[in-house]
Structures are given as C-alpha cells and as structure tokens.
Design a protein around this nucleic acid. Structure first.
Lengths: 199, 199
DNA sequence: GCAAACTTTGACGATGGCGTCAAAAATAAA
DNA sequence: TTTATTTTTGACGCCATCGTCAAAGTTTGC
C-alpha cells in the first residue's frame, strides 16, 4: 500500500475544504481531516507538511472559485441587478449545506487560532480581489450618477457589508432577512441622481 | 482557605471577560481562566457550573455595557454626528488592547465551538437591542427626510455594517480605514433630500 | 463552642491533540 | 531484476483538556 500516492488529490482536497468550511480552522483537527477523507493522518502530514499549509492550499482554491463566481454575478448590464445577483450569490453560498456552512474567510478571519500571518495575508488577498472586482463594476458608465458615493468608497462599503451579512446569517439563520437587508443597502447606494440636485 | 468565597467576584469576572474577549470562546480553556484569575479550576466549576454558564454570565455584563455606551453615542442632536460617534465608539472598542481584542459578540457568533442555543440567543438579544436603539435614533424628527431608506431598514443595515467592520478590523488592522468606510456608509444613508426631487 | 454548610485544593482517569519516526509496502528507474 | 524513491501505516511520547470527587479547611449560625 504505497509507492505512488494512493488517494485522489482533487477529491481529498475537496473534502478537506468542506470540513474546514463547516468546522472552522481552529476547531478542525488533523484527525478530523483524516476521518473525513479516509486518508491517514501520517499521509496528510507527509503530503502537506502541516495543518496551516494544508489550509492555505485549499483556501486558495476556495478564493479563486469565490472571486470567479462573484465576478460573474456582477457582470450584468444593469447595476442594481448586478448588485442583487452578487448578494444573492454570497447569501446562497453561505446558506448552502446542512447545517449552513457560513463563510470560510470570515470564520477564519475571526478565529483566534488562525492568526498566523500567511493566513491573514491569504484572506487579505481575497478581499482585495473582491473589492477590485466591485470597484470595476461600479466604475462602468451605467452606474455613473447613480451612486451616492464614489465607486471605490462604495466598493469598500459593500465588501464590508458582505462580511456583516455573514455574521448576521450565523446569528439569525434567516436567508430572507439577509436578502432584504442587502436590498436596503443597494437602495441606499443607488439613491444618487443623474442631475445634481437644485440648491 | 475555604468557607466563604475567597476571590473578588467582580474582579474575577472582569478578567474572565477579558480572556474570552481576546481568545474567543472556543479557544479558551477553563485552565486559561484559572491562570488568568488566580482562581483554581475546581473553584470556577463549583461557582459557575461550566464554561458555557460562565460565558453567559460575563457576556450579559458585556452586552449591557455595550448597549449603554452605544446608546450614549447615538444620543446626539445631529444625526450625522450621532452616527459618527456611534461608529467611532464601536471601532474604539474593538481596537482597544494589545493585541486589539476585536468584538466579542462577533467572534462568538462565528465560533463553531459556541453554537449552543443559549449562546446564540444571548447574541441575538444583544443585536436586537442594538437595532432597537438605532431605529429609535433614526426615527427622531431631525433624521426625517434625510434617510435614503426608512429608519427600521436603515438600522438593520447599520447594525449589519458594524459586524462587517469588526471582520475588516481583524483582516486589515487599520482603524483609520474603518472610520473612512463608516463615513462613506453614513453619507450613503443620509443622501436623502428633505423635499422630494423634482421629476 | 459545635455542627452544618460551603469553598478550596489537588489528584484522578479518560480522552484526544500534536508532530515524529521507523518499518513495511509498492512503484519507478536503472 | 535490482536498487532507489516514495507513500503508507501504526505506534510512540508528550502534553492538555475535561468533569468529578474526596479530603481538608473556614466560616456561619445555632
């Protein structure tokens, strides 16, 4: 039972991501990962160094997928529609699973056992990319004049808002409530007028 | 060394709150609390049942103080000033300490090891109170006509936003950035006009 | 004073985490 | 076929946690 790697890496990493996502970094032991994947603890150590390296490995995949999907949702001709789809996507993502899995990056950001700098950096990288995608969308012509604050500022508020939504999901476990709050947020952002108001 | 309680309860509970705040519920062991307070583990079990009960005990004090201070910040004649003071207070609260302690309720909300229903309920209770205080403030006459969405909706967005701010603090560790984002948020909210815009 | 009530203390056994390592096994290269 | 490389496997030692409990020690109230 050895020689070349015995387990399907794609499949294994997928399951590992799932365990981290549901349980959080700090609360997940190597044994948990071994049990969930059927790969022995020693094999995981051998293949991926330690828990932190393993986490960074799967977090990278997670972040790439998240950014891609978020970008796709934002890529709509109508700004309001784009923002609604964006929030719908984030809400759908965090409420998936039984129990709902929440948001991996937020769980990790607030996990005191995940305060190693490489982990922080990975989260920062993901949020920076999200903010960039949002800024780009809000800078398109169809948003001009509609926004109550400049695109870059708005993007930062919206990204912060998604983090808040994640927390509210944990507390109230009510997706419809989250969607309603998101709609309010969008209305606030798009309350601008094309013509400057008369003085 | 026995008979009547040997330790100063106020002082001990204060230290315990501090440990929970910094380390988070799940990452804190009874031994941590014993070490931090100088009270033996057995005495803590004897006096407070278990970790969950102890947490709920100090969380109650925390929530009361938080709501009181938040309410005081909101109690300003000028809405914009009230909201700025409110966000300044929350940001100051989460960045205090070395290292910055963050926000206890948010850390707990996203802690998978703190998913017992009594704990969830306590967090819900605190956020409900915060939302109520915010709604009340935004319903006062001086805010009328300024808001881009109704008071209750705005309150829910703002409370969600404070949760997001907490997460961003963990990630970027930059208080000034948080304040700037808060100001953008306030601008978006107060972009309403007293007179309905001419068609 | 004396007895009851309570707190403190230290230890117990069970469980589970961590990272390491040597031996066993299987494949790849020569 | 033989050798080198790599993975798997299971066990190791160490340390920390948990909740409990009996013994020891104080204080309170009768």
């Amino acid at each position: 039972m050895a020689g070349r790697r015995q387990f399907d890496e794609q499949h294994t990493l997928g399951r590992i991501l799932d365990v981290f996502w549901h349980q959080g970094y700090g609360a997940t032991s190597m044994q948990d990962l071994a049990t969930a994947t059927g790969v022995q603890r020693g094999s995981l150590y051998n293949a991926y160094q330690d828990k932190e390296s393993l986490f960074l490995r799967v977090f990278g995949d997670y972040a790439d997928a998240f950014i891609a999907d978020a970008g796709a949702a934002l890529d709509q001709p109508d700004v309001r529609r784009a923002l609604e789809d964006f929030f719908d996507f984030t809400i759908e993502s965090m409420t998936r699973g039984t129990p709902p899995r929440g948001c991996l990056s937020t769980k990790t950001a607030t996990d005191t056992q995940a305060d190693a700098e490489p982990i922080r950096a990975a989260i920062r990288g993901m949020l920076d990319r999200l903010e960039a995608a949002m800024t780009e969308r809000l800078s398109r012509p169809d948003a001009a004049g509609l926004l109550t604050v400049p695109p870059a500022e708005a993007a930062r508020v919206l990204v912060t808002m998604t983090r808040g939504t994640v927390v509210m999901e944990r507390v109230y476990q009510d997706p419809e409530r989250l969607r309603a709050t998101a709609r309010s947020m969008i209305t606030m952002l798009l309350a601008g007028r094309r013509e400057p108001a008369a003085t």
